[in-house]
Write a protein that binds this DNA or RNA. Sequence first.
RNA 1: GCGCCCGUAGCCGAGUGGAUAAGGCGUCAGCCUCCGAAGCUGAAGAUCGCUGGUUCGAUUCCAGCCGGGCGCACCA
Length: 561
Amino acid sequence: MKTKIREMVLCAAQKAFEDGLLPFDQIPEMEIETPKHDGQGDFSTNFAMVSARVQKMAPRQIAQAIVDSISLDDAGATGHLVEKVEIAGPGFINFFLSARAWHPVVDQILEEDDRFGASDMGQEEKVQVEFVSANPTGPLHVGHGRGAAVGDSVGNILAFAGYDVQKEYYINDSGRQIRTLGTSVWLRLCAARGRAVDFPEDCYQGDYIKDLAQKVLETEGEGILEKEEAEAIQICARFAAGEILSGIRADLEDFGVVYDNWFSEQSLYDTGRVPAAIDTFKAKDLIYEKDGALWFRTEDFGDEKDRVVVRNNGLTTYFASDIAYHDEKYERGFDRVIDVWGADHHGYIKRIDAAVVATGRKSEQFEVILVQLVNLLRGGKPVQMSTRAGEFVTLKDITDEVGRDAARFMFLSRSYDSGLDFDLELAKQKSADNPVYYVQYVHARIAGILTKAKTQGLIDNIEFSRGQHLDRLVEDEELKLIKHLSGFREQVEKSAKTLHPHVIFTYLMSLASAFHGYYNRHKVITDDAALSEARLALVLGVKKVIRNGLGLLGVSAPERM
RNA sequence: GCGCCCGUAGCCGAGUGGAUAAGGCGUCAGCCUCCGAAGCUGAAGAUCGCUGGUUCGAUUCCAGCCGGGCGCACCA
């Protein structure tokens, strides 16, 4: 429809020029948009305003020239699709469409079903979205929850928008933190067997470490106490990381997140990719030695300072494996790599960007979604969280306490560019009137209507004669609803383009509002069979779009609540 | 000090150059003999942090300032 309007404007501009109403035939960048307010038509264009300078005329005069030259589309049996064109405000040209122009949207939804709203803007471009990637040294907490909700939804949205998406979790199963984990478990294990141990502060303090120690004893037997400490610690480390990781996996699944791939940091060492990456950079003279350590010239790529990849003790840094890791991603064939990080990691962006560029990729191929931090509260008071101290509310606690749908909603209802206060008391206590239910309620309500229609034998009519009576949809609320529905794909595209899932949420809220308003004013099932049929088709369309939209956010669409 | 993010009604917030600045919570007044009231209708409530600049037009872009959050390791 938009392209149709655009053509009309372009034709009119050409004609106006030929008729001498406009001095120049230049066509500037114009937009066809949906006006914000009622009474401003279904579409509008800023053509006149953006032409003001080239035409050297007042916007409203230009608009008049266009309107005078416009020829409406061919009138069908029931009249023009575009009913009226008028000039408003500083020079907007507003187009008013007839009801007939909107009716086919309902058919389209029923036809396309779970693909309605899908787009091909991605052109099957290969995109990887990596998110959460928490160290397997402890359970996931709220912050990870927000990252999980964002990453998962962004992946869903990009896929729906036509990208070839892979969701990946990077497992930091190598390095110092894992060793610390092993030591922590080992010491707890020793303590459990009566050995006097000094438990250092930099070890993980949580009770789950004690549980893990017990499990190691059960699995490995008492024999582990006889082993060399270094070996025992390694056994503990491997065991504990494996246990924690499967816990993380389970918690994410409960949260509705399923990955396409779990990628191990250790595998980069096993395959020699980390030293290989360092050697490659050395060959390009991107690495130099100073103070016994190896430094990567990230400053040459815009970073504040150069960064260490191999410490003076010979151990590689986390950054070194990240260089190899990101290189590996592109080698796997991804055109775009998107990392979802907590805002506290923002200082790391330039470093990875430098690595990406240094391996010959374009900076635009690497994007970071920085998710601002979550401030966990309980009854208005901050909850102190520290992995080390072992005091935290886990993602699992949150899923159990407020529910997956409500939690995901909380995380996705607003832009991740802002910090988020997550109050457990509030989320729980208000779960009954949490806005996510406002949207889900639409789905359940319509399910109820359809059930009723079914018992009256009306449902088969929709299936067999869809679209037959759509011309009966003439109420303002009905047309408003259809217009909302027709805008779904555009919102999906906007969300995919900006990588902001909350766009979908905002859309769903306003669609839900339009439906509830309609529902309260009009009966869907009436004595008039044809009218009922048309309205059932409409609400069925609403139901499908709600389901599709909620699905992108990883929120369920219940038949009953 | 430097860097990133944020500053929109009592509170939470949408808005990536346009016409009357969404929506939710809270407050006030109404709506269920009728497809689900987890709903609807109406009312009150905003100098869009401040000051300049760019533009026909700025909440939106730029600069400076103020306020808040987070970073600035041979940790991850």
